[in-house]
Write a protein that binds this DNA or RNA. Sequence first.
DNA 1: GATGAATGAGGGTTCATTCAT
DNA 2: GATGAATGAACCCTCATTCAT
Lengths: 231, 231, 231, 231
Amino acid sequence: MKATAVKSKQRRGAPAAKPRSKAALEPVRDAERTRQAILAAAEVEFADKGLAGARVDAIAEQSGANKQMLYYYFGSKENLYVAVLERAYGAMRQTERELDLLALDPLDAIRKLVEFKFDYLHEHPSLIRLLAVENVHNARYLKRSRHLRDMHNSLVTVLQAVLAAGQARGQVKPGIDPLQLYISLAGLSYFFFANAATLSTAFGRDLVSDSELKRRRAHVVEMVLDHIRVR
Amino acid sequence: MKATAVKSKQRRGAPAAKPRSKAALEPVRDAERTRQAILAAAEVEFADKGLAGARVDAIAEQSGANKQMLYYYFGSKENLYVAVLERAYGAMRQTERELDLLALDPLDAIRKLVEFKFDYLHEHPSLIRLLAVENVHNARYLKRSRHLRDMHNSLVTVLQAVLAAGQARGQVKPGIDPLQLYISLAGLSYFFFANAATLSTAFGRDLVSDSELKRRRAHVVEMVLDHIRVR
Amino acid sequence: MKATAVKSKQRRGAPAAKPRSKAALEPVRDAERTRQAILAAAEVEFADKGLAGARVDAIAEQSGANKQMLYYYFGSKENLYVAVLERAYGAMRQTERELDLLALDPLDAIRKLVEFKFDYLHEHPSLIRLLAVENVHNARYLKRSRHLRDMHNSLVTVLQAVLAAGQARGQVKPGIDPLQLYISLAGLSYFFFANAATLSTAFGRDLVSDSELKRRRAHVVEMVLDHIRVR
Amino acid sequence: MKATAVKSKQRRGAPAAKPRSKAALEPVRDAERTRQAILAAAEVEFADKGLAGARVDAIAEQSGANKQMLYYYFGSKENLYVAVLERAYGAMRQTERELDLLALDPLDAIRKLVEFKFDYLHEHPSLIRLLAVENVHNARYLKRSRHLRDMHNSLVTVLQAVLAAGQARGQVKPGIDPLQLYISLAGLSYFFFANAATLSTAFGRDLVSDSELKRRRAHVVEMVLDHIRVR
DNA sequence: GATGAATGAGGGTTCATTCAT
DNA sequence: GATGAATGAACCCTCATTCAT
């Protein structure tokens, strides 16, 4: 409260001499920057506390924006949550698109996809949490967002093409359901990261150390390849 | 509140025929029964709404107990949540113990374990949700409960023995990390059930229909066996 | 709750004539006025019921503010209580400072101080009650507030100077401990007002009637002077 | 809760062999002992927390009795509070009666009375607190209890006689109002003990150390005698 | 675009008290 | 006389949201 008050006074004290301030954190009237700051803060908060547990005040404070701005831009806490989901999923999807799996040798493509999933989840821990949050809500909000609906779909389509190519070359077993494979491939990495904390505690083994991560990554790749490769 | 009022009226409505009450929900002064009723209602509520989203009033009403009883027996919403977790995990663990995997042929044992995980999660959907809830909280409460700490451990120990036996018989590849296998084995089923709703929507395919469940179950088993079997 | 509803109706009832509201209780968006209204209501409530007995709802209603405002400005019931204490004590201290005792003849200064204490407590009955409340809590909150710590101190310092001056002039006995004198001087008035109700009942004599007040005031002054005067 | 349960089992386990247990804390079925245990615990709790702040549960637990017993014997929290007041005041009064002041030289009698008040309050700190509690409530409960009503009265009567005797002997000034003297005499000690904690903190001087207590005691006596003695 | 002040509807928790045994 | 289980009324506090500037 106090901090905000001070800030606003500073701003009001020097509105004419604006060139003086280009520091990254200066709260200038920049709609898009404010929006993004709110989204970033919200992602952290929602990932950390869930939808019900997240606090609008906390998001506002973290983002450096006024609480009212949050409503100005997103209308409600729930809408903000959906916006966060869309942004996080949209980013992942965009990255996936750039993989260009069809240009690779089929087995290499599969390997690359598995490794990508693993690495992406590792690098985006809040995504894990957001998905857990959605699971708690039975994916109510994911379903509502048509923007996200087709997300998985495209990847499965690619997977199907890759498998077909692999089968044509005699590298891949016939009869593999690309959807099952996709689910397994995602699950092997997701479950690991989602439960890394618990599992590390339970087994007294730091599963997110560099060496353990490498081991897990190799295991996941091998498991998938063991399943699809012809013997 | 309403429920209680109604019930007490029922009780008063039939005081003459009181020869050792048998109605399951009769609000007699039975500590253990009340405790269990609260736990059952809480499991549903927490699985459905998460820790922050769950409402103490809702739990009380659903359990047929007075809201205060919840505090009388569990002290706080958080403690109640932990009690729910312990009960749900304890039950699973107990069932696991009864599998007697060491008595089976190694490959059969693995198959049985995979199928058990799959079936148990299918039959206990709230467990999936509770785990998602815990993931949102970074397993804060699971870690706190030492009663749960060693839960996974025992299973991994068994798994290790089974793999060793399989290797001795030349059925199982050497060099398999039982922990990795355990995580994968759990993840393949868990991720499926956790995301069944989303995935069904995304792919326009009812993944929890009987036939699809059978298909998934077979896939999971095959994937695990493909990985461990010698070729 | 009711009060607020009524007030908002009043406001809506007279929107045309809004040329700079002057009504004391008009709920304008004026932070300081709201703060003071809450403090005033809280002083009454705390003095009347104690810390535990005071009701936040009652304070809110009496102040004309929304209950939430209380937390907005003071954070908690306890903090509000401390703020009330600080305000009440601060006001007394401020008045004491303006007595300018050192400018008077020593015996007159003592007399003036004694009379001041008596009159101030008479005019500020809630101060008596607040001190009683603090006594119940072993002065826990007074101690916490360093703002109040030095309150007594300054007066004792002045008293010491006055006594010294009196001794120099041969009016005052030597060897008087200013601290003991201060405690006695305060106690003689405080105890009377604190127990006026009980004592009046017990002795069947209305001790707070004008004539009785005069008598007590004279008695207190005389008692103090009898003690310090040389014979 | 647990502790109580255990105890009751012990009792039920050995009801026939009663001679085995004469330990002071054994919760036998002794009405008067239970009553007194409750009163003692209640005195501490009420003195410490006030009427509203005191917890019935805490009293029950501290007394070692069941909560219901408290209601069985006293009917309500408020009644229990009054009972505590009556007991504490009754005890003081009884002791006062035994002073036999009229047998002494008048000035010695006054001195003895002042010292008695000082010492008694020092030895019964909860009395100070209970009086503060009553002050917060405007002595509502004291007034209600006729048993306490005449308590002060008798002492003032004695005081009057002592003063008259002193005047007859030419030791005491004429025109002293025994009631004013009584109030002052009580106030000088009461205020000191009631505020000892605060004052010690404020002045950085431990006012309840042995030497400071002696000093205060002497000061109070002197102040009273200075006032009544002829010069 | 942005802000501090304000609000109403609960949320979890506590408490004095009573019931049934 | 004594106990554990149960109750309902509040109590303090929080939260998402809106108003007025």
